[in-house]
């Protein structure tokens, strides 16, 4: 028998999905958001995103000593997500340091993809906020000018701090804000793609957005509930950040608890804290609780509770 047969343990079929394809799907999902950001905030938004992605990928390639620049794509995703949380045009070095921190300290120090406790992009953002708050959270917002690729832009406060935007503007994204958070429309389009591809579960965004809406409703009525969902980073956070696979619970119940927790912390910071936005810290805090949540919500095994009619 000259033919060599491969022997391996079953199953002998593998799903076509792999990590790289998931990461590419996330990038595809972020594409409408990125497009909207460039449309609203001009070429500077594009530069910010490119710096963040390239530096993130370079950092990962250097740390892993890999020739393959794109790798499994996770560094590109982290870089782009980081850019999405930043104002349209921070100094280039702020973006670059954020990317380095996100990959080196947020991810690789823990042992690389899969082992990190906190969402790397948010770690990068958190370090930037604490270190150079003036470039990230002060009066750095640009007034969006559709097609305003070269126009000079005006700085003004973000709508969450000022409570002055209409719901329609918030939905389309024609308000000042971080690159990826202004346009609810683009975020929802991207998220639909991820849902369709089965990479995110309704539970985390559902819990997150639901709680934000309910607490917003309690604090100021129906339109305030909607306002809290659409303004600021809730949609970006709920759909793209909190759903980060590595740092969120794996159990179904755990996902709901996680989402609700993110929503509660976010709203507590928004309503009672002095910072206008709480999404970053809400998600980071719940990231830290993820292993605990997982262990407290081990699912019931099939058939574990005996049915009364059996």
């Amino acid at each position: 028998m000259e033919r060599k047969l491969v022997v391996s343990s079953s199953p002998h079929l593998k799903s076509p999905d792999d990590i790289q394809s998931i990461m590419v799907d996330v990038l595809v999902a972020l594409f409408p958001v990125a497009l909207m950001a460039v449309f609203l905030f001009g070429y500077r938004a594009l530069i910010t995103m490119i710096i963040a992605m390239v530096v993130a990928m370079a950092t990962e390639a250097i740390i892993l000593r890999k020739g393959n620049f794109f790798g499994d794509g996770s560094a590109a995703v982290t870089g782009l997500l980081l850019a999405m949380t930043l104002p349209p045009a921070p100094p280039w070095w702020v973006v670059a340091i954020g990317s380095v921190v996100a990959i080196a300290i947020g991810k690789q120090i823990y042992g690389g993809l899969g082992n990190n406790i906190f969402n790397p992009a948010l770690v990068g953002r958190a370090v930037l906020v604490v270190s150079w708050g003036g470039h990230i959270a002060g009066n750095v917002w640009l007034k969006p000018v559709p097609f305003g690729f070269t126009a000079d832009m005006v700085t003004q406060a973000s709508p969450l701090a000022a409570y002055n935007a209409s719901l329609g503007d918030l939905f389309l994204g024609t308000v000042p804000g971080s690159l990826g958070e202004t346009s609810a429309l683009a975020l929802i389009i991207g998220a639909i793609w991820l849902f369709y591809r089965g990479h995110i579960d309704w539970r985390i965004p559902g819990g997150f957005i639901g709680v934000v809406f309910i607490l917003g409703l309690i604090s100021g009525g129906f339109s305030m509930g909607l306002y809290h969902i659409l303004a600021g980073g809730v949609l970006l956070g709920a759909l793209f950040m909190a759903t980060d696979m590595v740092t969120s619970p794996v159990t179904a119940t755990g996902k709901i608890i996680f989402g609700v927790g993110c929503g509660v912390v976010t709203m507590v910071i928004r309503l009672f804290g002095s910072l206008p936005e709480g999404v970053t810290f809400g998600i980071l805090l719940m990231n830290g609780l993820t292993p605990l949540i997982d262990n407290l919500t081990l699912p019931k095994k099939f058939g574990e509770v005996k049915k009364s009619n059996a």
């Binding site: 340091i97 370090v127 604490v130 270190s131 150079w132 708050g133 470039h135």
Partner: peptide
């Protein structure tokens, strides 16, 4: 140079 504020804090 703009100092990296986080290094002056406990984290």
């Amino acid at each position: 140079f703009e100092p990296m504020g986080i290094l002056a804090t406990a984290p």
